[in-house]
Simulated scan of single mutants.
Amino acid sequence: MEGMAGQKSSLTWLVNIAALVLVVMWTIPTAGLFVSSFRDRDQISATGWWKSMTSSEQTGFVRTGTADDQTQDGDLYVLEGNVLGEGQSLVGWGTRSREPAAYKAGETAELDGAQLTVNEDGSYRLESTAPFEMRRGERIFVTTASPPHFTLSNYSRVLSAEGIGRAFMNTMTVTIPATIIPILIAAFAAYALAWMEFPGRALLTAAVVGLLVVPLQVALIPLLRLHNEIGIGKGYLGIWLAHTGFGLPLAIYLLRNYMAGLPREVIESARVDGATEFQIFRKIILPLSFPALASFAIFQFLWVWNDLLVATVFLGNTREQLVMTGVLRELMGSKGGEWEILATSAFISISVPLLVFFAMQKYLVRGLLAGSVKGG
Rank of each mutant, 00 (worst) to 15 (best):
Q321G: 07
N228A: 10
V214E: 10
A187V: 12
R201M: 12
K234N: 10
L204N: 14
R225V: 15
A190P: 07
H227G: 01
V266L: 15
I185K: 01
W240G: 08
H227W: 14
T276F: 04
I221Y: 07
V214T: 14
P182N: 11
Q217G: 09
V208C: 03
T325C: 11
G247K: 03
Y236L: 14
T205F: 14
W195K: 13
I267H: 04
L308D: 07
L220Q: 04
A194Y: 03
N306H: 09
E197W: 11
L212D: 00
R264D: 08
L255M: 10
Y191P: 12
I221T: 10
A251L: 10
L184Q: 03
Y236Q: 10
Q300E: 07
Y236I: 13
A192E: 08
R201K: 15
A242Q: 02
L237K: 05
G261E: 05
V304A: 12
A270T: 07
L241P: 05
F299T: 06
R201Y: 12
V313P: 01
G210V: 03
D307W: 02
G247E: 10
R201N: 13
L237Y: 09
M196T: 13
G245P: 04
D307V: 04
V209T: 08
V209F: 12
R201T: 13
A202T: 09
A260M: 13
F188G: 00
A187Q: 02
L255F: 05
G245D: 06
I284C: 08
E197P: 07
Q279P: 04
I185M: 05
T318V: 06
G274L: 09
P182T: 09
Q217K: 13
T312E: 13
L255C: 00
V272G: 09
I285C: 06
V313N: 02
A194R: 01
D273Y: 09
L204Y: 14
S295E: 06
M259P: 09
I221M: 11
L302T: 05
W195C: 06
T312H: 11
E277D: 15
